[in-house]
Design a protein around this nucleic acid. Structure first.
Length: 399
DNA sequence: AGGTATTCACATGAAACTATTCTCTGAGTTAGG
DNA sequence: TAACTCAGAGAATAGTTTCATGTGAATACCTGT
């Protein structure tokens, strides 16, 4: 088929979607279902900001995909609208602390905040105190209240420790005109447990927990989104129910369930199907999982990939592999490729990270007299393993 | 037999080092007046 | 004299090494029966 006719046909075909944007994570719905209580609490806590009083610092817990981020953004939107209408100097900032190269270190976080205030700062070269000073002066320019939402704050704490929070809570003491209210959003329910007690008490003056959705709630939310995103009669009966049931038992993550639905639609469209059926959903589920693995693996550094490659070489042949065995294979690979060999210490960390990424399953076991080690196995489907191995070979220039 | 002490093979933690990227500063150089 | 160039000092960061310490349970080694 000629490309020109392909595009012509493409245009003639009716899309399954009426508004695909509804299914993207960036979409902000008018109404957030099953979160009335939490929204009300947040609104209550933050409302004093509209009177230029400093609201209590707020801490929000809940697993991924339970609506934390979207709720905070929702509240922010209305707060700012109201503030604008009534001429209140209210500034709402939202930062995701997990974003690589954006806000995943102390320096970068403050730099990002300055950027939100409209001040560009260099990516490196400046002392961190200097950034704090710039930040203080930027905030203190006028009498205002600043609400600062830090998403995935637990990731940041794990990476660089909790001193940064001490600095953040101290900001108010430095400011003369402005006031700042902190909103921490965490995926981990136990985040604050290993936090400096002083930081903990000032950071979480108020706490809100977002429970996971159950299957029926997920189903309802999915239905709402699907109605907005797909043309009528496109989704076959049972598809939404299945998607919801799966999401509920696996993780309770609505965002992911919505992603699956979108990809199912895309797959159906590519197959020139006029409806979305069960098997599209299954394919979408698999595609999402394998895409995640591939992306995670390919954006790691070279040595990291080499270790993963070593695992892929032997793990499928045996059911359990130990750290030492992987280290040996990795070493021979290094010699073949003429790369310098990392220490076992480092390998240990890499294995732990691969486990975190969900690419491998590593369990620390004790073999008694024969030591303690990680028992490593692959939890990926065979097809994924083969593709991943090929991808890594290409990335590492192995033959 | 039953109890405890060892011992293995790593895990885990902390600090420090290396290489790279970036800014800022100030001395030296250049071009124009 | 103002504008430009360029080296050197100082920062932040990612990835790593070095040194030090921790650890769960199968086995070795006792003890008293």
């Amino acid at each position: 088929m000629k490309i020109s006719t392909f595009f012509e046909n493409f245009l003639k075909k009716r899309s399954l979607f009426s508004n695909k944007a509804v299914l993207f994570p960036s979409y902000a719905p008018e109404e957030i279902k099953y979160r009335e209580e939490q929204l009300e609490q947040i609104a209550n806590i933050l409302a004093p900001a509209l009177r230029l009083e400093k609201p209590s610092n707020l801490f929000i817990y809940g697993k991924t995909g339970t609506g934390k981020t979207i709720s905070v953004k929702h509240i922010f939107r209305f707060l700012q609208e109201t503030a604008a209408k009534n001429n209140v100097n209210l500034l709402c900032m939202y930062v995701n602390c997990k974003l690589k190269r954006v806000a995943d270190t102390e320096y970068r976080l403050i730099a990002q905040l300055l950027r939100e205030c409209g001040k560009e700062v260099p990516v490196t070269g400046l002392p961190t105190d200097e950034l704090y000073n710039l930040f203080y002066t930027a905030l203190d320019e006028k009498r205002q209240v600043v609400l600062l939402a830090l998403d995935e704050i637990d990731q940041l704490a794990k990476k660089i420790g909790d001193e940064i929070f001490y600095n953040l809570t101290r900001i108010n003491a430095e400011l003369k005109q402005a006031q700042i209210g902190l909103i921490g959003i965490s995926n981990s329910l136990f985040f604050s447990d290993n936090l400096d007690p002083r930081v903990k008490s000032s950071l979480s003056e108020e706490e809100i927990i977002f429970p996971s959705y159950n299957a029926l709630q997920i189903q309802d939310i999915l239905r709402g989104r699907a109605a907005g995103a797909f043309r009528e009669q496109v989704i076959q009966p049972g598809v939404l129910e299945k998607g919801a049931a799966y999401a509920a038992q696996e993780h309770g993550d609505v965002r992911r369930a919505i992603d699956v639905l979108r990809i199912a639609g895309e797959i159906a469209e590519r197959e020139a199907s006029s409806i979305v059926e069960m098997h599209h959903l299954d394919k979408a589920e698999k595609k999402l999982e394998s895409d995640r693995v591939f992306a995670a693996a390919l954006q790691q550094p070279q040595q990291f990939q080499l270790v993963l490659y070593a695992i892929l070489l032997i793990a499928p042949k045996k059911k359990n592999v130990f750290t030492g065995e992987i280290y040996e294979i990795y070493q021979t690979l290094c010699h073949k490729k003429n790369l310098n060999v990392l220490t076992q210490r480092r390998l240990s960390d890499i294995l732990a990270e691969l486990d975190m990424l969900g690419i491998i399953t590593a369990k620390i076991i004790s073999k008694g007299r024969y030591g303690r080690t990680r028992e490593i196995s692959l939890s990926l489907a065979d097809t994924i393993i083969i593709t991943l191995r090929e991808l890594l070979e290409k990335a590492l220039h192995l033959e």
